[in-house]
Computed example of a mutant assay.
Amino acid sequence: MRTATVTIKPDALTHNLRQVRKLAPKSKVLAMVKANAYGHGIAVALPALQQADGIGVASFTEALEARELGWQKTIGLIEGVFSADEWQQAIDNDFSCVIHHLPQLQWALENVPDADSPTRTVWLKYNTGMNRLGFADDTIVEIAKQLHSAGYQLILTTHFANADNNEHPLNAKQIQCFSAVLAGLKQTVSADIKASLCNSAGIINFPEYHYDWVRPGIMLYGSSPVIDKRADELSLQPAMDFSARIMAMQIVKAGSAIGYGSHWLAEQDTKTALVSIGYGDGYPRVVADCAEVCVIDASSGKSYRCAIRGRVAMDMITIDISALPENIALDSRVVLWGDAPHVDEVAAYAGTIGYELLCRLSLRPERQVCSSL
């Protein structure tokens, strides 16, 4: 049977959440589980993230699913609602919402929830330079006053554009803008206004600005959010193992090409293996010539790095197994990403980021959950 497998490790998720707690011990944690928990499966992720103070989702459907799965703590809609009807549904389902543009403000002012409703706490989005969502400098204070006067508890929030790069000049500008507005709101509106600035990269690079809530995403899943440190250097453990099996082996003669477009030519007789994985499963179609996978020798348990040869096809890849033991078995396990190679390494081969690879896995691979690390 063709085997491509995605194995999720809940213990790694729990471990990574503990790392967030160590880095931001005084802050509450809004764990991001949008996009089906970054491709890991929200039903698997939620039990592993029980020690978070809340979760963040991008859509109303995701929020409803989390509630149906039994999540009783804060559920934050990080893009807010998209209609007046959704605002009422947010109240009915005890969701907390971001407010980032005028229609959302109007819906909130026209329909104020009861004092004990979680929807009474809103995340007021301030555009400090990302230039996607949020209110500008000339409106943020007045909007905060309106919401506070209506009885809302406010969490001022914004989003870094370059927190992964500690040296980018926009970071300092965003921090300065956010800090100044927060101080002004505490003076002129309410001393009880809370703040949330840091995503995963911000948690690592800007510890002095963790404020009341941090919002970890990719680091929960074991990927590094910063450009100058690997995941293992941050004590993060990959929560996903993506693997397949060797389905055939052959010798490719010197001067012969492999795969579509005859992209790779063998300089010498080369022992190759076909692996039952491809872009139809979610492995990137375009990877650099240096891209590698790991073959696990079932007899010894030893792991061998093997280079991909030729283009990635929809259903299979070819790898060079010339350096492997002669007795390497058909059906040997091949790790596409996991502990090694790490998803961040594969993303570098593909000229993208780990987020994308994790989120765009197809439904074809078999899904399983590891009971322990």
Score class of each variant (00 low, 15 high):
115 A>I: 15
304 Y>T: 12
32 M>E: 07
136 A>S: 11
48 A>W: 02
164 D>E: 15
175 I>W: 00
330 L>C: 04
303 S>R: 15
61 T>E: 15
178 F>L: 00
63 A>V: 06
23 L>G: 02
4 A>I: 09
335 V>R: 14
350 A>S: 14
35 A>I: 10
185 L>Y: 00
196 S>F: 03
8 I>N: 07
238 P>G: 11
191 A>Y: 01
197 L>F: 08
40 H>E: 11
300 S>W: 08
235 S>I: 03
190 S>Q: 01
213 W>P: 03
279 Y>K: 12
300 S>V: 09
45 A>R: 02
117 S>Y: 08
195 A>L: 02
1 M>C: 09
131 N>L: 09
150 A>C: 01
262 S>L: 14
46 L>F: 02
292 E>M: 13
206 F>I: 04
97 C>W: 05
324 L>G: 03
357 L>A: 10
3 T>Y: 11
285 R>G: 06
56 G>V: 07
234 L>H: 04
326 E>G: 02
358 L>C: 14
267 E>G: 05
363 L>A: 15
138 D>Y: 02
260 Y>E: 15
322 S>K: 04
332 S>E: 07
122 V>K: 07
190 S>N: 02
136 A>V: 03
365 P>M: 10
21 R>Q: 15
41 G>P: 03
302 K>D: 12
148 H>T: 00
366 E>V: 13
20 V>Y: 09
226 V>K: 05
228 D>H: 13
33 V>I: 14
351 G>R: 10
146 Q>R: 07
349 Y>G: 09
156 L>D: 04
235 S>A: 13
191 A>K: 06
24 A>K: 04
1 M>Q: 07
70 G>D: 06
75 I>S: 05
262 S>T: 13
78 I>S: 04
345 E>Q: 15
26 K>P: 02
309 R>C: 12
56 G>S: 09
161 A>F: 06
259 G>E: 08
357 L>K: 10
119 T>G: 07
15 H>N: 05
203 I>E: 03
318 T>W: 13
236 L>D: 10
249 M>S: 09
17 L>H: 05
155 I>F: 03
10 P>Q: 05
303 S>T: 14
156 L>V: 01
179 S>F: 00
198 C>A: 09
234 L>D: 03
57 V>M: 06
293 V>S: 11
273 A>S: 08
307 A>I: 11
89 Q>W: 08
27 S>N: 08
97 C>T: 06
333 R>C: 13
81 V>C: 05
331 D>R: 11
121 T>I: 12
